[in-house]
Design a protein around this nucleic acid. Structure first.
Lengths: 222, 222
DNA sequence: TTATGGATTATGGATTTCCGTAAAATACTG
DNA sequence: CAGTATTTTACGGAAATCCATAATCCATAA
């Protein structure tokens, strides 16, 4: 079982519940961080002190408030923690149920478990902790398990997402092309952007651009 | 202080925290409901038994699962509870920070308090309970207090929202006009719809239709 | 070098959206 | 009822997009 745990979670209520859960599991050496930045600093310090954490439980979305932060969400935190401590076990604990995001966490950040916050998620969290503490298996909440089976969206790259973001931001296609040209992004011709848009519409089964942006927003891609 | 309280909240974690909060306030007679339907039935039964609740604390968004439900979210629950028990005090406890929705809760459902879930919301919840138990004042979390000052968006009516929803659903303007004509919705000419869209774009400072849908989605209007 | 295939870019026309103006219908007022 | 104001509808040209095809570039291999 884990000896030293850190929880990154902004909601006070949920921190309370996680605290209780960890106590139930006889884990007494744990700390909270209500901001990603704080969590990262603590993890880095623990490494330097040669007393690293062996488990990170992290939420994905964090409320913005007056405080200025470097790491704005759990995805980034997880990514950065993986870099400085590759062997730490990571549980993402979130209400997020968009399959693309979940899949990306397993694929890109190699999280060990994804627990979906819900009516009985405390039990699931316990289960996840058990499984990943005793083996190298991964755990995922059954409601979203299908996310991992999704056929990979290899067709969508960074430029596509950039285009989608600009579009949802009110930029016209012509303006996007201009921006791409001035900032030296590779495909920057009118027809190249049009072709990509056409592919995206095809991929997401969107009738038109408005629909496309609406769908990708819903999916949490942009 | 309140004698009998019901909490409508699906997340197990938060239920745990609210439970603790109520105990801290020496409120021992309280019940949870993880579904809006259950909450409504309990409230109705309590009225029939002549032992009505005097406080409802309700979340706004509830996860969908296998179970089929009549009341899908907290907004509807609050509305229906107000109808059958006008004198009950209601606290909306939610992570929702869209000012339009919050304003609508105060205006249309006459909630007594809105507490924004956040890093220290437990304390705010206690404060809200105190204030509304001893007076007819309302309470709103300071982070979103500005929501009540928002100038009313009188310009946006039901038809506008319908148009926006159709648009985000991939329907073209021409198709929308067809739909309006076949279902006898008042303004159903090409130019009428165009004018409305133009007004909406003006109102929301949107550059184009894609932008407009993106903005209104973010605001929670559609 | 030349040929080949893939990716990028260019072109042009069909369709849709955008936006202003004007006509028609409706409501409101004295 | 006439006259004015407001809303709804009609029209048309400009702009943007959609979409198919053709031309160009470029790396690799014969």
């Amino acid at each position: 079982m884990f000896k030293k745990v850190i929880v990154a979670e902004d909601l006070g209520d949920i921190n309370l519940a996680i605290e209780q859960t960890l106590k139930d599991l006889d884990i007494v050496n744990f700390q909270h961080a209500k901001y990603c930045d704080d969590a990262f600093l603590k993890i880095r310090k623990a490494i330097q002190d040669n007393e690293p954490y062996d488990l990170l439980i992290s939420d994905l979305s964090f409320k913005k408030d007056h405080r200025e932060v470097k790491i704005a969400n759990g995805d980034e935190l997880i990514q950065k923690v993986r870099e400085i401590q590759p062997n730490i076990k990571i549980i993402a604990y979130s209400i997020e149920d968009k399959s693309l995001r979940i899949k990306s966490l397993f694929d890109n950040s190699e999280i060990d478990a994804f627990v979906l916050k819900g009516r009985n998620s405390i039990e699931e969290l316990k289960k996840a902790i058990h499984i990943i503490s005793t083996s190298d298996q991964t755990f995922i909440s059954p409601e979203v398990a299908s996310a991992l089976q999704e056929k990979s969206n290899y067709e969508i790259d960074d430029t596509d997402i950039k285009i989608l973001k600009y579009l949802s931001d009110g930029t016209s296609q012509d303006e996007i092309i201009e921006i791409f040209k001035t900032s030296d992004i590779k495909p920057n011709s009118k027809s190249a952007v049009e072709k990509r848009l056409s592919k995206l519409k095809d991929f997401f089964k969107a009738n038109n651009t408005v629909h496309l942006v609406s769908i990708t927003k819903d999916m949490g891609i942009i």
